[in-house]
């Protein structure tokens, strides 16, 4: 089980290259969303490694919180003056 967790963490570190060297802002947002979902999978697999089922609740709360975070970033983090998402 630990080899799978190590592989997913290495994938997340590879994806962080796009956050450092993204030409524009949506590239960084897509890479951030991908790293967040990978860390959700790491949390679920850690719950199976330690065999404590309370950690699934941590994964659920983290997933809801991260989705709301991405939505708020895509809504408000824009250059104003050219018409927004909701307009």
């Amino acid at each position: 089980m630990l080899y799978f967790i190590l592989a997913i963490v290495l994938c997340a570190i590879l994806t962080f290259y796009r956050v450092i060297k993204g030409p524009s802002l949506p590239d960084r947002l897509v890479a951030m969303n991908s790293i967040g979902v990978m860390f959700l999978l790491v949390l679920v697999l850690l719950s199976y490694y330690f065999e404590r089922k309370i950690f699934v609740d941590v994964a659920l709360v983290y997933g809801v919180s991260f989705f709301i975070n991405v939505l708020i970033m895509a809504k408000y983090l824009k250059k104003p003056g050219k018409g927004g998402v909701g307009d």
Binding site: L29, F39, V42, L43, Y62, M73, L77
Partner: peptide, 13 residues
């Protein structure tokens, strides 16, 4: 600001 939730996620793990 975009990198801040990744910091929080690593802290959670």
């Amino acid at each position: 600001v975009i990198t801040l939730p990744l910091f929080g996620a690593i802290l959670v793990i």
